[in-house]
Design a binder for these strands. Structure first.
Lengths: 342, 342
DNA sequence: TTGTAGGCGTTATCAT
DNA sequence: ATGATAACGCCTACAA
């Protein structure tokens, strides 16, 4: 059995309150006594029982990160940022893989979250009324990461998707591309797809490049779906010179399709992604993409959450994380006329 | 404030013991009463306070997964398996990113693990006496994943690395390769590098293929290190026809180097990896590799751990997970004489 | 400055 | 079958 506060008290010949104070308010204890107690604590390897403190204070020192899937490097990276802040605050992070699944979400809420967690970071799907209602019932601070609160203005941490997408598209245009296809995420997933689509469209229009639904194709934001989407896009736009995909995973899937068609990237077709996953620099040529500082998103979300935890009635301000175009090897500058252009 | 067992009792006009029994031993409660209580529980949205139960039973329903880095897809995948079993058992998983760092490990142990966790899955480094000692002090079931207990025979879940590595090498030999370079993980990381090296060497010898330290190069098991290691290997073995790397990350780094040298994979050089990371199928050509069923490793480790949790004095048996050669596009069969061989 | 005592919510033992 | 009660370990108001 672990030593309790009583054991320490007896051993040090003081009352349990003194021991408790040594932990929670050291200055209120006389120097000698404090040192005596500290020594016994050390000797016995005493640490307060978190259940007992939790029972009294209603705090668990645990936060929850709800994400669709850790296997997705995007969320792994985010989690890593969250975990970093949590460790520094002496908090634990519990993972909930929601798999974009309401039932599973409920299961978590019912069996875990309700059971005392001090805060929640939600990075899964679209927030619907269903989620909002459950969050409210939890009665703990909630921060959204890479998604937004929509009507319910929950605090969130994310990139300015419209602007980022605008920048990506403009980059392609500035490199001499006009026939730019867009592989969007699924239209039912409003965030971030509405925004990324809007940025794309706006950039095209602002630069007087014709754009229509003919330039767009929709797919789940995965590698396999990207591959398949590229085949559809290619059928619609056989003359495209560039493809902009709303996620790196899709972009890399698209590249696979192009490769199989004997189309070289970037010689025949340029490709631009979004996310800057770790693997985007591993492929050859490296993927030119929009970097979200995902780690930073996680960290910021954590920091925001702790603000809320430490000061329960404070209004949390949403945060926008800067983005950046990462130039690698998948976009060809068509303005530099080369021998083998298309 | 959340409703307590007292609120339910009052509302249902029974004693708290009855309410408690409805939860923990429903059959011992009369049918009508049970139903009445159940209804009130529903109405009030009552759920037992886990701190109170924890305080009594000394169980947290939480396990810890200690891994080097979630950003590494290998561990993300493993975590995903662990999490799956945990959810089914109504347990939570807390992540500890150790970053292969003893201090950080200690921090976790001190602030979290000691604070009541029912079990631990450790998938970080080599187990040294330092770790073993800390595990013992924790006094909870510990299962190793993808590492081994060495002298201390802690239960572990892993692939048979010697055999898997033997199979990989043999596959290359059977495809007509003789000049096979090996990119090993760092020699200070005994597990799994000793085993993979042994499998490689044994396969070469068994097939009468000359092998020596000239064929081997050591590096950290990352993409960047693989790239750099390939340059060293190429300097030592300019005539190699195949490279076998002890991890996919290294293999893909090596491919990048080869690509930059104008060497095509697999036309000029064949490449074989180890791990079957998700991204290995995303690159073009897809990486031929040894699949560890990493998800399964995580799941098995979880199951083993729960055996230990549910029956504290049971001896846990280590588990070996099957491996498999995944043939994709990076190994050329030199026995099929083609036009452009090397 | 230090000690005493009550209460946090649950479960299990014991009595009815 | 049901109810009363002690105990889990900690913290803090209050008393000394």
């Amino acid at each position: 059995m672990n030593p309790t506060i009583h054991d320490v008290a007896k051993q040090a010949n003081v009352s349990i309150s003194t021991v408790s104070r040594v932990f929670n308010n050291p200055d209120s204890v006389g120097k000698e006594m404090r040192e005596r107690v500290l020594q016994v604590i050390e000797e016995l390897g005493y640490a307060p029982n978190p259940f007992a403190s939790g029972l009294r204070d209603n705090r668990s020192m645990v936060i929850v990160a709800m994400i669709p899937d850790i296997r997705n490097s995007y969320y792994a990276e985010m989690l890593s940022g969250i975990e970093e802040v949590a460790l520094s605050k002496r908090y634990n992070v519990i993972i909930c893989n929601t798999i974009q699944n309401e039932e599973r979400f409920l299961e978590y809420v019912k069996y875990f979250v309700k059971k005392k967690v001090d805060g929640l970071i939600f990075a899964s799907t679209e927030i619907t009324e269903f989620y909002k209602k459950n969050f409210d019932a939890l009665n703990i601070p909630v921060v959204l990461a890479s998604t937004e609160g929509r009507a319910w203005d929950l605090p969130s941490v994310r990139v300015d998707d419209v602007q980022a997408s605008y920048d990506a598209t403009t980059f392609l245009i500035n490199n001499g591309h006009q026939e730019i296809g867009f592989i969007s995420g699924p239209s039912h997933l409003l965030v971030p797809n509405v925004q990324r689509y809007e940025g794309y469209r706006k950039a095209m229009q602002d630069h007087q490049v014709p754009v229509s639904e003919q330039h767009v194709v929709y797919a789940e934001m995965t590698f396999d779906a990207g591959y398949e989407a590229m085949s559809r896009l290619y059928a619609k736009m056989p003359h495209l010179t560039a493809v902009y995909a709303a996620s790196d995973a899709m972009a890399i899937g698209a590249m696979k399709f192009l490769h199989e068609q004997g189309l070289e990237v970037p010689r025949h077709v340029s490709v631009m992604g979004f996310d800057n996953l770790e693997l985007s620099r591993m492929i050859s040529p490296g993927l030119t993409t929009v970097a979200q500082n995902i780690y930073e998103i996680g960290k910021s979300a954590g920091e925001l959450l702790f603000q809320g935890i430490e000061n329960r009635d404070q209004d949390l301000q949403s945060v926008t994380i800067a983005h950046e175009i990462i130039v690698r090897g998948t976009v060809r500058n068509r303005r530099l006329k080369s021998d083998s252009e298309r």
